[in-house]
Design a protein around this nucleic acid. Structure first.
Lengths: 228, 228
DNA sequence: TCAAAAGTGTTTGCCATACACCCATGA
DNA sequence: TCATGGGTGTATGGCAAACACTTTTGA
């Protein structure tokens, strides 16, 4: 006998994305104004429905590509939400992803869509259970960013030590000591210090760095583990 | 206009459970022999389909209750699996949970169902993508057990320091130093040392301990964080 | 010459690790 | 009395945290 599962209930599966960015020393998330009922006009995460012939990761990528035009965005699934009435229209389970993008290379987002960046401690009330999703996403990001070198996804390719520090400060919601941070990062030995300086922030200028992914991967193979 | 999502695809949602237990100094998982096609007779995780009017947590609890008769089992959701062909019968997305049970109080499981405990480094080939689920569950358990006092879920109410050490050794897949382990645990100050001894393992007998959940919660409120 | 940010080392305390002997008991 | 597992303390090294002054440069 071939069981065909025909008596089982089918449901809608949505993918919702918490898109993180970093700008003006602040961690931000991208929200859109929902343009259909229910909750039309309210702020919402970016999302979409899973289609029959794609995986959740593919659906997440599709949603992100539709919004940004890019399809190599860092993304991690973190939780499924399934309260029976979480979406008043129809029974919908949502699998949530957080994504990290470099705001500078996606600067056209805000005009193209009714999208807007919000600093993480200034987020408006969101529809459905999206508030709790954001909270969970941030927890996951905090953990991941201290254990894997994903923070660089949020920065331009070339960045200063100060930018990196501010990034971690805003992800972790703490102040860090400049000297300790610098020596910790240098100790990791996965950045390239460029000759070039960023002259925007001071007269003296500050050296730019790049993440050396090749070196990082080589070190991982040799047993290195990233930890901040 | 009220959007009714009517053009979207619906899918089956399954819940699969990795049930961990601890017996004879070994971390184990409970598997069943699948009794319907496809893959009938192969080893499989315990699972079930999400019903229209329940949450994923409720579905997980239902599956566990059906198997064990208990419904207060520690359980944590950890990932959704969505490869298009992961289940050959129909498009099915699986949300996976790991659960921790005390084997002693559920000793009848093996006979009641075609279920069997397998030591984690002696697990047979499983159906579908269940192998990878087990691997991910173990990773999550390793993380969680070092950050929250959930290991006790796997032990009898009263346990010896040695049992606790062996438990952590098998979860973390390492050897631990007896003196260091003991003083670390005692330093946490969340166990009650009983007057009672376990006389089964030696002539001298070894003191029994209990997890003091009330004390733990009080300490957490005061800023304590569990860490092993 | 001054204001503003960049860059740089040392000291301290704590925690993780390594390590070995005596104790209690029943056979 | 002996074999078996239970129970206990100290010394060391490494890492995290605290901390302040000099440098550079354009205005």
């Amino acid at each position: 006998m071939l069981n065909n599962y025909s008596n089982e209930d089918k449901v809608l599966l949505a993918v919702d994305c918490i898109i993180f960015g970093f700008e003006k020393d602040q961690l931000k998330i991208l929200l859109i104004k929902r343009d259909f009922e229910p909750e039309k006009g309210k702020w919402s995460l970016i999302g979409g429905f899973l289609k029959k012939n794609e995986t959740l990761d593919q659906a997440g990528n599709r949603v992100l590509k539709h919004l940004t035009g890019y399809d190599n965005i860092y993304m991690e699934q973190f939780n499924a939400y399934s309260e029976v009435d979480r979406d008043p229209v129809d029974r919908t389970i949502s699998v949530s992803y957080y994504a990290l993008i470099n705001i500078e290379t996606h600067s056209a987002l805000e005009e193209q869509y009714a999208a807007q960046w919000f600093a993480i401690d200034d987020i408006p009330k969101l529809i459905f259970d999206h508030d709790i999703m954001v909270k969970h996403a941030l927890n996951r990001l905090r953990y991941r960013a201290t254990h894997k070198p994903i923070g660089f996804e949020l920065l331009p390719e070339k960045f200063t030590m100060k930018q990196l520090q501010k990034l971690y400060e805003s992800i972790l919601n703490t102040k860090l000591d400049k000297r300790n941070f610098t020596s910790k990062i240098n100790g990791l030995d996965i950045l390239v210090k460029l000759e070039e300086k960023d002259m925007n922030s001071s007269r003296k200028g500050s050296f730019l760095y790049m993440f050396d992914e090749t070196k990082y991967k080589k070190k991982v193979e040799e047993g290195f583990t990233f930890k901040i």
